[in-house]
């Protein structure tokens, strides 16, 4: 059962982060643009330099070759890039044909030219391409930003099923409060989701008072939230924790 765990993960804009995402759990992440959401996802995929360590299914990132780690943590960037002319060349030879069908495509889509895809088609096909590589976790950056409601529903349903079926931990950056609200509700076979927001350089619960009974609401996320300064250097003695920054008014 893949569990995604970060310890003291430090990216450019954010204070060191401790976070656990249980198998099959969903965590939403929101925050003003430029606050470092995408950079956090990139660090999680080991695509940027970072401090701190992360584990997936008990395996530390550093213990795996970088390509294998990236394949396992499955990052879907906000913008989908393609490098061959034909859509199908980006897919592994053997993949579940249902993937495309569930996103509203027929099998002929594999012969389409990438240059002719609309923005929404690119986004949906990028998700299909990612899932076809069978990652153990999902890191989604604005996965439905360019989609109309029916296609957004398709994508949401597919991701929820992937969570359920593969017990994949999901970290989802979403700007849409309704989407976060909607998918945070518990569903059959799925626990309710946690919603985090970036305030200043810290990760906080979006609605701390709501207490939806999602695990431990007091669990520390950003290091600064831990009770005593004495604990700060417990795990990574050398960690340079984020500079203190005045709280922004919410």
């Amino acid at each position: 059962m893949p569990l995604l765990r970060l310890q003291g993960l430090k990216t450019r804009n954010l204070a060191p982060i401790d976070l656990q995402i249980a198998p099959g759990a969903l965590v939403f992440l929101s925050g003003p643009s430029g606050s470092g959401k995408s950079l956090l996802l990139r660090a999680l995929a080991d695509l940027d330099e970072h401090q701190g360590e992360m584990w997936l299914d008990g395996t530390p990132c550093a213990a795996l070759p970088a390509p294998e780690w990236r394949r396992r943590v499955g990052l879907l960037p906000a913008e989908a890039f393609w490098w061959y002319d034909r859509v199908g060349d980006h897919f592994p030879a053997r993949h579940d044909p249902q993937l495309l069908e569930r996103l509203g495509f027929g099998p002929e889509v594999l012969d389409w030219q990438v240059g002719r895809l609309s923005t929404g088609e690119r986004q949906r096909l990028a998700l299909a391409r990612l899932l076809a590589h069978q990652p153990q976790a999902l890191l989604l950056d604005e996965a439905t930003a360019n989609l109309d409601p029916p296609n957004r529903d398709r994508v949401e349903a597919l991701i929820q099923d992937y969570r359920r079926e593969w017990a994949a931990p999901v970290l989802w950056v979403s700007h849409d409060p309704e989407q976060r609200q909607r998918l945070a509700q518990p569903a059959p076979g799925l626990a309710s989701a946690r919603r985090l927001v970036i305030r200043g350089d810290r990760l906080e619960e979006e609605e701390p008072a709501a207490g939806l009974g999602l695990g431990d609401p007091a669990s520390p996320i950003t290091r600064e939230h831990q009770s005593g300064p004495g604990q700060r250097h417990g795990i990574l003695g050398h960690a340079q924790h984020g500079r203190p920054q005045p709280e922004r008014p919410n």
Partner: peptide, 20 residues
């Protein structure tokens, strides 16, 4: 950059991602 990183993200090695 976008295309190279997209290839890396799907688990390709650097040599594969820059081959073309």
């Amino acid at each position: 950059r976008g295309r190279i990183e997209a290839r890396l993200l799907l688990g390709q090695s650097w040599e594969c991602a820059i081959r073309d």
